[in-house]
Amino acid sequence: MEINFTHHQSAHCENGVVSNLMKHNGYNVSEPMVFGIGSGLLFCYIPFLKVNHAPALTYRAMPGFIFKRFAKRVGIKIKREKFKSSQNAKTRLDENLNKNNPVGLQVGVYNLVYFPDEYRFHFNAHNLVVYGKKEDTYLISDPVMETVTTLTEKELEKVRFAKGAFAPKGHMYYPIDFPKELTIEKAIIKGIKQTCRDMLAPVPVVGVKGIRFVASLIRKWPKKKGTKVANHYLGQVVRMQEEIGTGGGGFRYIYAAFLQEAGKLLKNDKLTELSVEMTLIGDSWRDFALDASRIYKNRSAKEDAYNNIALQLETIANREEIFFKKLRKAI
Protein backbone atom coordinates (compact mmCIF):
# COMPACT_ATOMS: atom_id res chain seq x y z
CA MET A 1 0.00 0.00 0.00
CA GLU A 2 1.02 3.56 -0.45
CA ILE A 3 -0.08 6.45 1.72
CA ASN A 4 -0.67 9.74 -0.05
CA PHE A 5 2.29 11.55 1.47
CA THR A 6 3.97 14.68 0.10
CA HIS A 7 7.74 14.77 0.34
CA HIS A 8 9.45 18.09 1.02
CA GLN A 9 13.20 18.32 1.11
CA SER A 10 14.64 19.98 4.19
CA ALA A 11 18.02 21.11 5.46
CA HIS A 12 17.98 18.97 8.58
CA CYS A 13 16.46 15.54 9.06
CA GLU A 14 14.61 15.89 12.35
CA ASN A 15 12.92 19.21 11.57
CA GLY A 16 12.10 17.85 8.15
CA VAL A 17 10.40 14.73 9.45
CA VAL A 18 8.32 16.71 11.95
CA SER A 19 7.40 19.35 9.39
CA ASN A 20 6.48 16.72 6.80
CA LEU A 21 4.37 14.74 9.29
CA MET A 22 2.59 17.92 10.40
CA LYS A 23 1.88 18.91 6.80
CA HIS A 24 0.52 15.44 6.15
CA ASN A 25 -1.91 15.93 9.02
CA GLY A 26 -3.11 19.24 7.63
CA TYR A 27 -1.04 21.71 9.65
CA ASN A 28 1.22 23.90 7.58
CA VAL A 29 4.29 24.17 9.80
CA SER A 30 7.57 25.07 8.14
CA GLU A 31 10.94 23.54 8.90
CA PRO A 32 12.38 26.68 10.57
CA MET A 33 9.23 26.90 12.73
CA VAL A 34 9.81 23.37 14.03
CA PHE A 35 13.47 24.13 14.62
CA GLY A 36 12.76 27.36 16.52
CA ILE A 37 9.88 26.10 18.64
CA GLY A 38 11.79 22.93 19.45
CA SER A 39 14.83 25.04 20.50
CA GLY A 40 17.09 23.15 18.11
CA LEU A 41 19.89 25.70 18.17
CA LEU A 42 22.69 24.91 20.59
CA PHE A 43 26.40 24.74 20.96
CA CYS A 44 27.95 22.10 23.14
CA TYR A 45 31.41 20.66 23.45
CA ILE A 46 31.21 17.10 24.73
CA PRO A 47 34.24 16.30 26.85
CA PHE A 48 35.52 12.70 27.11
CA LEU A 49 33.74 11.60 23.96
CA LYS A 50 35.55 10.97 20.69
CA VAL A 51 33.90 10.67 17.30
CA ASN A 52 36.06 9.33 14.47
CA HIS A 53 39.03 9.65 16.85
CA ALA A 54 38.52 13.40 17.27
CA PRO A 55 36.74 15.56 19.88
CA ALA A 56 32.96 15.73 19.64
CA LEU A 57 30.95 18.89 19.56
CA THR A 58 27.39 19.53 18.58
CA TYR A 59 25.55 22.51 17.19
CA ARG A 60 22.09 21.13 17.85
CA ALA A 61 19.87 19.79 20.60
CA MET A 62 20.00 16.08 21.46
CA PRO A 63 18.40 13.82 18.85
CA GLY A 64 14.68 13.56 19.50
CA PHE A 65 14.50 16.67 21.70
CA ILE A 66 13.36 18.98 18.92
CA PHE A 67 10.25 16.92 18.24
CA LYS A 68 9.59 16.33 21.92
CA ARG A 69 9.68 20.02 22.79
CA PHE A 70 7.79 21.02 19.66
CA ALA A 71 5.01 18.55 20.44
CA LYS A 72 4.72 19.68 24.04
CA ARG A 73 4.72 23.36 23.18
CA VAL A 74 2.11 23.31 20.41
CA GLY A 75 -0.02 20.75 22.25
CA ILE A 76 0.14 17.63 20.08
CA LYS A 77 0.65 14.16 21.48
CA ILE A 78 3.21 11.79 20.03
CA LYS A 79 3.56 8.08 20.49
CA ARG A 80 7.05 6.63 20.63
CA GLU A 81 7.97 2.98 20.51
CA LYS A 82 11.27 1.20 20.89
CA PHE A 83 11.77 -2.49 20.36
CA LYS A 84 13.96 -5.29 21.54
CA SER A 85 13.12 -7.66 18.72
CA SER A 86 13.34 -6.68 15.09
CA GLN A 87 10.33 -8.87 14.33
CA ASN A 88 8.08 -6.85 16.62
CA ALA A 89 9.47 -3.64 15.20
CA LYS A 90 8.55 -4.73 11.70
CA THR A 91 5.06 -5.92 12.70
CA ARG A 92 4.25 -2.63 14.42
CA LEU A 93 5.52 -0.67 11.44
CA ASP A 94 3.37 -2.69 9.04
CA GLU A 95 0.32 -2.27 11.27
CA ASN A 96 0.72 1.47 11.19
CA LEU A 97 1.16 1.56 7.44
CA ASN A 98 -1.99 -0.56 7.07
CA LYS A 99 -3.84 2.04 9.12
CA ASN A 100 -2.71 4.71 6.65
CA ASN A 101 -0.43 6.25 9.23
CA PRO A 102 3.02 7.36 8.00
CA VAL A 103 5.59 7.07 10.80
CA GLY A 104 8.93 8.65 11.61
CA LEU A 105 11.89 6.38 12.28
CA GLN A 106 15.26 6.97 13.86
CA VAL A 107 17.96 5.16 11.90
CA GLY A 108 21.71 4.72 11.62
CA VAL A 109 23.40 6.24 8.59
CA TYR A 110 26.14 3.66 8.06
CA ASN A 111 23.98 1.10 6.26
CA LEU A 112 21.70 3.56 4.50
CA VAL A 113 22.27 2.35 0.96
CA TYR A 114 20.90 5.36 -0.92
CA PHE A 115 23.40 7.70 0.78
CA PRO A 116 26.65 8.40 -1.06
CA ASP A 117 29.40 6.14 0.27
CA GLU A 118 31.43 9.04 1.62
CA TYR A 119 28.59 10.07 3.86
CA ARG A 120 28.10 6.73 5.53
CA PHE A 121 29.58 7.04 9.00
CA HIS A 122 28.42 5.43 12.22
CA PHE A 123 25.96 8.14 13.11
CA ASN A 124 22.72 6.92 14.63
CA ALA A 125 20.49 9.94 14.90
CA HIS A 126 19.17 10.27 11.37
CA ASN A 127 15.42 10.49 10.81
CA LEU A 128 13.15 9.51 7.96
CA VAL A 129 9.49 8.79 7.23
CA VAL A 130 8.07 5.49 5.97
CA TYR A 131 4.92 6.10 3.97
CA GLY A 132 4.13 2.77 2.39
CA LYS A 133 5.13 -0.72 1.41
CA LYS A 134 5.09 -2.54 -1.88
CA GLU A 135 5.69 -6.28 -1.52
CA ASP A 136 8.90 -6.36 0.51
CA THR A 137 10.06 -2.82 -0.27
CA TYR A 138 9.34 0.10 2.00
CA LEU A 139 8.65 3.53 0.53
CA ILE A 140 10.88 6.07 2.25
CA SER A 141 10.70 9.84 2.45
CA ASP A 142 14.10 10.96 3.70
CA PRO A 143 13.89 14.72 4.26
CA VAL A 144 17.48 15.45 3.25
CA MET A 145 17.02 13.75 -0.14
CA GLU A 146 15.55 15.62 -3.08
CA THR A 147 13.03 12.90 -3.88
CA VAL A 148 11.51 9.85 -2.22
CA THR A 149 13.38 6.56 -2.20
CA THR A 150 12.98 2.93 -1.13
CA LEU A 151 14.57 0.35 1.16
CA THR A 152 14.03 -3.40 1.27
CA GLU A 153 12.81 -5.06 4.46
CA LYS A 154 16.29 -6.28 5.25
CA GLU A 155 17.95 -2.94 4.61
CA LEU A 156 15.43 -1.13 6.77
CA GLU A 157 15.86 -3.62 9.61
CA LYS A 158 19.60 -3.06 9.51
CA VAL A 159 19.41 0.72 9.82
CA ARG A 160 16.70 0.54 12.50
CA PHE A 161 18.87 -1.72 14.60
CA ALA A 162 22.22 -0.01 14.06
CA LYS A 163 24.49 -0.22 17.09
CA GLY A 164 26.79 2.19 18.89
CA ALA A 165 26.13 5.57 20.54
CA PHE A 166 22.44 6.63 20.38
CA ALA A 167 21.46 3.19 19.02
CA PRO A 168 17.96 3.67 17.61
CA LYS A 169 16.58 0.30 18.80
CA GLY A 170 13.89 0.46 16.14
CA HIS A 171 12.65 3.81 17.48
CA MET A 172 9.37 4.70 15.78
CA TYR A 173 7.24 7.79 16.42
CA TYR A 174 4.10 9.43 15.13
CA PRO A 175 1.59 12.07 16.28
CA ILE A 176 -1.62 10.60 17.69
CA ASP A 177 -3.61 13.53 18.98
CA PHE A 178 -3.98 17.10 17.75
CA PRO A 179 -5.62 20.06 19.50
CA LYS A 180 -8.29 22.06 17.68
CA GLU A 181 -5.81 24.83 17.10
CA LEU A 182 -2.06 24.80 17.57
CA THR A 183 -0.83 27.26 20.18
CA ILE A 184 1.90 28.54 17.90
CA GLU A 185 2.38 32.05 19.39
CA LYS A 186 2.95 30.86 22.93
CA ALA A 187 5.11 28.04 21.66
CA ILE A 188 7.37 30.44 19.78
CA ILE A 189 8.00 32.48 22.92
CA LYS A 190 8.76 29.37 24.95
CA GLY A 191 11.09 28.10 22.26
CA ILE A 192 13.01 31.38 22.02
CA LYS A 193 13.30 31.64 25.80
CA GLN A 194 14.82 28.22 26.08
CA THR A 195 17.32 28.82 23.28
CA CYS A 196 18.45 32.05 24.99
CA ARG A 197 18.78 30.21 28.28
CA ASP A 198 20.79 27.40 26.72
CA MET A 199 23.11 29.63 24.76
CA LEU A 200 23.79 31.87 27.76
CA ALA A 201 24.02 28.98 30.24
CA PRO A 202 26.64 29.37 32.96
CA VAL A 203 28.25 26.06 32.01
CA PRO A 204 31.77 26.08 30.55
CA VAL A 205 31.08 23.70 27.66
CA VAL A 206 27.61 24.91 26.65
CA GLY A 207 26.45 27.80 24.49
CA VAL A 208 28.50 30.96 24.14
CA LYS A 209 30.90 29.76 26.84
CA GLY A 210 31.32 26.48 24.97
CA ILE A 211 32.36 28.34 21.82
CA ARG A 212 35.03 30.18 23.82
CA PHE A 213 36.11 26.89 25.36
CA VAL A 214 36.62 25.32 21.94
CA ALA A 215 38.50 28.44 20.79
CA SER A 216 40.92 28.00 23.67
CA LEU A 217 41.35 24.33 22.78
CA ILE A 218 42.11 25.22 19.16
CA ARG A 219 44.91 27.50 20.33
CA LYS A 220 46.51 24.61 22.19
CA TRP A 221 46.17 21.91 19.54
CA PRO A 222 49.20 22.53 17.30
CA LYS A 223 51.61 22.55 20.26
CA LYS A 224 49.98 19.82 22.26
CA LYS A 225 48.93 17.39 19.55
CA GLY A 226 51.22 18.05 16.60
CA THR A 227 50.34 19.20 13.11
CA LYS A 228 48.63 16.09 11.86
CA VAL A 229 46.30 15.54 14.78
CA ALA A 230 45.55 19.26 15.08
CA ASN A 231 44.52 19.36 11.44
CA HIS A 232 42.40 16.26 11.85
CA TYR A 233 40.65 17.79 14.87
CA LEU A 234 40.04 21.03 13.05
CA GLY A 235 38.63 19.13 10.08
CA GLN A 236 36.26 17.43 12.48
CA VAL A 237 35.08 20.78 13.87
CA VAL A 238 34.23 21.93 10.36
CA ARG A 239 32.58 18.65 9.46
CA MET A 240 30.44 18.78 12.58
CA GLN A 241 29.59 22.34 11.71
CA GLU A 242 28.78 22.11 8.05
CA GLU A 243 28.19 18.51 7.23
CA ILE A 244 26.74 16.34 9.94
CA GLY A 245 23.31 17.92 9.94
CA THR A 246 24.39 21.35 8.61
CA GLY A 247 25.47 22.53 12.09
CA GLY A 248 26.90 26.00 12.65
CA GLY A 249 26.36 28.25 9.67
CA GLY A 250 23.42 26.33 8.26
CA PHE A 251 21.59 26.20 11.57
CA ARG A 252 22.07 29.91 12.11
CA TYR A 253 20.34 30.52 8.78
CA ILE A 254 17.47 28.22 9.70
CA TYR A 255 17.15 30.07 12.99
CA ALA A 256 17.19 33.42 11.20
CA ALA A 257 14.41 32.14 8.92
CA PHE A 258 12.49 31.14 12.04
CA LEU A 259 12.91 34.59 13.61
CA GLN A 260 11.69 36.22 10.41
CA GLU A 261 8.58 34.03 10.35
CA ALA A 262 8.03 34.52 14.08
CA GLY A 263 8.39 38.30 13.70
CA LYS A 264 5.57 38.32 11.14
CA LEU A 265 3.33 36.04 13.21
CA LEU A 266 3.80 37.91 16.49
CA LYS A 267 3.95 41.30 14.72
CA ASN A 268 7.21 41.96 16.50
CA ASP A 269 9.59 44.07 14.40
CA LYS A 270 12.47 43.45 16.77
CA LEU A 271 12.51 39.78 15.87
CA THR A 272 12.67 40.68 12.19
CA GLU A 273 15.65 42.94 12.89
CA LEU A 274 17.35 40.23 14.90
CA SER A 275 16.79 37.80 12.05
CA VAL A 276 19.01 40.00 9.88
CA GLU A 277 21.68 39.99 12.59
CA MET A 278 21.53 36.21 12.91
CA THR A 279 22.08 35.91 9.16
CA LEU A 280 25.28 37.95 9.53
CA ILE A 281 26.44 35.71 12.39
CA GLY A 282 25.75 32.71 10.15
CA ASP A 283 27.97 34.31 7.51
CA SER A 284 30.76 34.61 10.08
CA TRP A 285 30.44 30.92 10.90
CA ARG A 286 30.88 30.14 7.24
CA ASP A 287 33.91 32.43 7.03
CA PHE A 288 35.34 30.56 9.99
CA ALA A 289 34.83 27.24 8.20
CA LEU A 290 36.42 28.63 5.06
CA ASP A 291 39.54 29.85 6.91
CA ALA A 292 39.80 26.64 8.90
CA SER A 293 39.62 24.64 5.68
CA ARG A 294 42.56 26.63 4.31
CA ILE A 295 44.66 25.42 7.24
CA TYR A 296 43.96 21.74 6.88
CA LYS A 297 44.03 21.93 3.10
CA ASN A 298 47.67 22.98 3.16
CA ARG A 299 48.31 20.48 5.93
CA SER A 300 50.44 23.04 7.70
CA ALA A 301 50.08 24.17 11.26
CA LYS A 302 51.39 27.63 11.71
CA GLU A 303 50.47 28.57 15.21
CA ASP A 304 49.53 31.92 13.83
CA ALA A 305 46.83 30.45 11.69
CA TYR A 306 45.40 28.53 14.62
CA ASN A 307 45.42 31.62 16.84
CA ASN A 308 43.77 33.48 14.04
CA ILE A 309 40.78 31.20 13.70
CA ALA A 310 40.51 30.84 17.47
CA LEU A 311 40.19 34.62 17.57
CA GLN A 312 37.50 34.44 14.88
CA LEU A 313 35.60 31.95 17.00
CA GLU A 314 35.87 34.19 20.05
CA THR A 315 34.50 37.11 18.05
CA ILE A 316 31.54 34.96 17.03
CA ALA A 317 31.02 34.01 20.68
CA ASN A 318 30.95 37.69 21.70
CA ARG A 319 28.48 38.54 18.97
CA GLU A 320 26.22 35.63 19.86
CA GLU A 321 26.30 36.63 23.52
CA ILE A 322 25.09 40.13 22.66
CA PHE A 323 22.59 38.68 20.20
CA PHE A 324 20.94 36.28 22.63
CA LYS A 325 20.78 38.93 25.36
CA LYS A 326 18.93 41.19 22.92
CA LEU A 327 16.69 38.34 21.83
CA ARG A 328 15.77 37.59 25.44
CA LYS A 329 14.61 41.17 25.85
CA ALA A 330 12.76 41.28 22.54
CA ILE A 331 10.04 38.84 23.62
Binding site: Q9, S10, A11, P32, N52, E118, Y119, V144, E146, N231, H232, G235, Q236, V238, R239, E242, E243, T246, G250, Y253, I254, A256, A257, Q260, E261, S275, V276, T279, A289, L290, A292, S293, Y296, K297
Partner: peptide, 30 residues
Amino acid sequence: ELCYAVNDKGEYTTASSSGWTPKTIALNNA
Protein backbone atom coordinates in the same frame (compact mmCIF):
# COMPACT_ATOMS: atom_id res chain seq x y z
CA GLU B 1 21.44 19.80 -0.33
CA LEU B 2 18.84 22.31 0.73
CA CYS B 3 20.08 25.63 2.13
CA TYR B 4 18.30 28.57 3.68
CA ALA B 5 19.25 31.90 2.15
CA VAL B 6 17.95 35.45 1.81
CA ASN B 7 16.47 36.70 -1.47
CA ASP B 8 16.67 40.23 -2.89
CA LYS B 9 13.81 41.46 -0.71
CA GLY B 10 15.49 40.20 2.45
CA GLU B 11 13.06 37.32 2.83
CA TYR B 12 14.19 33.82 3.65
CA THR B 13 13.82 31.17 1.00
CA THR B 14 15.40 27.82 0.19
CA ALA B 15 17.90 26.94 -2.50
CA SER B 16 19.75 23.80 -3.57
CA SER B 17 23.49 23.58 -3.20
CA SER B 18 25.66 21.10 -5.06
CA GLY B 19 28.50 21.35 -2.57
CA TRP B 20 30.97 23.64 -0.87
CA THR B 21 34.74 23.30 -1.16
CA PRO B 22 35.67 23.64 2.56
CA LYS B 23 33.23 20.85 3.31
CA THR B 24 34.54 18.66 0.53
CA ILE B 25 38.11 19.09 1.74
CA ALA B 26 37.15 18.24 5.31
CA LEU B 27 35.31 15.14 4.14
CA ASN B 28 38.13 14.06 1.83
CA ASN B 29 40.63 14.48 4.65
CA ALA B 30 38.50 12.38 6.94
